[in-house]
Computed example of a mutant assay.
Amino acid sequence: MAELLSQDRIDEALKQLPDWQQEEVDGQSTIVRTVKAQSFPSGIDLVTKVAAEAEAANHHPDIDIRWRNVTFRLSTHSEGGLTELDLSLARAIDRLAQQ
Rank of each mutant, 00 (worst) to 15 (best):
residue 7 Q to F: 04
residue 21 Q to E: 10
residue 73 R to H: 03
residue 16 Q to C: 09
residue 13 A to H: 08
residue 43 G to S: 13
residue 45 D to Y: 04
residue 70 V to S: 06
residue 68 R to K: 11
residue 20 W to V: 02
residue 54 A to R: 07
residue 59 H to C: 06
residue 95 R to P: 01
residue 78 S to K: 12
residue 91 R to Y: 09
residue 29 S to Y: 02
residue 56 A to V: 10
residue 95 R to D: 05
residue 15 K to Q: 15
residue 41 P to F: 07
residue 21 Q to W: 08
residue 2 A to K: 15
residue 69 N to E: 10
residue 87 L to I: 14
residue 31 I to D: 00
residue 64 D to G: 05
residue 37 A to Y: 04
residue 1 M to H: 12
residue 98 Q to R: 05
residue 56 A to P: 14
residue 17 L to M: 03
residue 83 T to I: 00
residue 20 W to P: 00
residue 43 G to K: 08
residue 90 A to N: 01
residue 41 P to H: 09
residue 59 H to E: 08
residue 94 D to H: 02
residue 50 V to D: 00
residue 94 D to G: 01
residue 44 I to D: 06
residue 50 V to M: 04
residue 16 Q to R: 14
residue 36 K to S: 13
residue 52 A to W: 11
residue 26 D to F: 14
residue 63 I to W: 00
residue 78 S to R: 12
residue 51 A to D: 09
residue 14 L to Q: 10
residue 28 Q to T: 15
residue 57 A to R: 12
residue 9 R to F: 03
residue 11 D to R: 02
residue 79 E to R: 07
residue 44 I to Q: 07
residue 62 D to H: 06
residue 84 E to L: 14
residue 6 S to M: 04
residue 75 S to A: 11
residue 19 D to Y: 14
residue 12 E to C: 01
residue 70 V to L: 05
residue 81 G to Q: 05
residue 51 A to F: 09
residue 83 T to P: 03
residue 16 Q to F: 11
residue 5 L to N: 00
residue 80 G to M: 10
residue 21 Q to L: 09
residue 85 L to G: 14
residue 68 R to A: 04
residue 50 V to W: 03
residue 55 E to W: 04
residue 48 T to L: 14
residue 70 V to M: 05
residue 82 L to H: 03
residue 77 H to K: 13
residue 56 A to G: 14
residue 17 L to R: 00
residue 52 A to S: 08
residue 60 H to K: 05
residue 43 G to N: 09
residue 43 G to M: 09
residue 51 A to K: 06
residue 39 S to N: 09
residue 4 L to F: 03
residue 27 G to W: 13
residue 47 V to G: 01
residue 18 P to T: 08
residue 68 R to S: 03
residue 14 L to M: 12
residue 40 F to G: 05
residue 82 L to P: 02
residue 26 D to P: 13
residue 7 Q to E: 08
residue 6 S to V: 04
residue 43 G to P: 10
residue 84 E to F: 11
residue 7 Q to V: 09
residue 42 S to K: 15
residue 11 D to K: 02
residue 91 R to I: 10
residue 36 K to R: 11
residue 53 E to D: 12
residue 97 A to I: 02
residue 57 A to H: 12
residue 16 Q to D: 11
residue 66 R to P: 00
residue 19 D to P: 07
residue 75 S to Y: 09
residue 87 L to F: 10
residue 77 H to T: 12
residue 35 V to C: 01
residue 94 D to Y: 02
residue 7 Q to P: 02
residue 87 L to Y: 10
residue 75 S to M: 07
residue 16 Q to G: 12
residue 90 A to S: 02
residue 31 I to K: 00
residue 14 L to R: 11
residue 63 I to Y: 00
